[in-house]
Simulated assay, not measured.
Amino acid sequence: MKSTSEKYGSVAVTIHWLSAFLILVLLGTGFRAAATTDTLSKEEILTIHASLGITILLLTVARLVWWALADRKPVALASSPAWQNLLAKFVHGLFYIVIFGMAASGIGMLVLSGAGSVLFGGATAPLADFSDYAPRIPHGIGARVLLLLLAFHIGGALFHQFIKKDGSIARMWYGGH
Rank of each mutant, 00 (worst) to 15 (best):
M1T: 13
K2S: 10
K2C: 01
S3L: 08
S3M: 05
T4E: 05
T4F: 11
T4V: 15
T4M: 06
S5H: 14
K7F: 08
G9Q: 09
V11T: 08
V13Q: 15
I15T: 03
I15E: 09
L18W: 07
L18Q: 09
S19W: 07
A20I: 13
F21D: 09
I23Y: 08
L24W: 08
A34R: 11
T36R: 06
D38M: 04
D38W: 08
T39P: 02
S41G: 02
K42A: 13
E43T: 12
E44Q: 09
I45S: 01
L46G: 00
H49R: 03
H49T: 04
A50Q: 00
A50W: 02
A50E: 05
S51V: 06
G53Y: 02
T55I: 15
L57V: 12
L58G: 00
L58E: 07
L59D: 01
T60P: 05
R63D: 10
L64I: 06
L64Q: 00
W66I: 12
W66V: 13
A68W: 11
A68N: 09
R72H: 13
P74H: 14
A76E: 12
L77C: 07
S79H: 06
S79F: 05
S80D: 15
P81V: 03
A82F: 07
W83P: 08
N85S: 15
L86F: 08
L87G: 03
L87W: 09
A88V: 07
K89D: 08
F90W: 14
H92R: 05
L94V: 07
F95W: 07
F95Y: 06
Y96V: 13
Y96E: 08
I99M: 13
F100I: 14
G101H: 04
M102R: 06
A103Q: 09
A103Y: 12
A103H: 11
S105F: 14
S105G: 07
S105T: 15
S105C: 13
G108F: 08
M109W: 00
V111K: 01
L112A: 03
L112I: 05
S113D: 12
G114V: 09
G114D: 02
G114Q: 02
A115V: 02
F120I: 00
F120H: 00
G121Y: 06
G122A: 09
G122N: 05
G122W: 05
T124F: 02
T124H: 03
A125H: 00
P126D: 11
P126L: 01
L127D: 01
L127E: 00
L127A: 03
L127M: 03
L127C: 04
D129N: 03
F130C: 04
F130E: 09
Y133E: 00
A134P: 04
A134I: 12
A134Y: 05
R136Y: 14
R136V: 10
I137Y: 13
H139Q: 13
H139P: 12
I141E: 08
G142I: 10
A143S: 04
R144N: 15
V145G: 05
V145I: 15
L146W: 03
L147D: 00
L147K: 01
L149M: 10
L149H: 01
L149I: 14
L149K: 00
L150N: 03
L150Y: 06
G155A: 06
G155L: 05
G156H: 04
F159K: 15
F159S: 10
F159V: 12
F159A: 11
H160K: 11
Q161F: 14
Q161Y: 13
F162L: 06
R171I: 04
R171W: 13
M172H: 11
W173C: 06
Y174K: 14
Y174A: 07
H177A: 11
H177D: 09
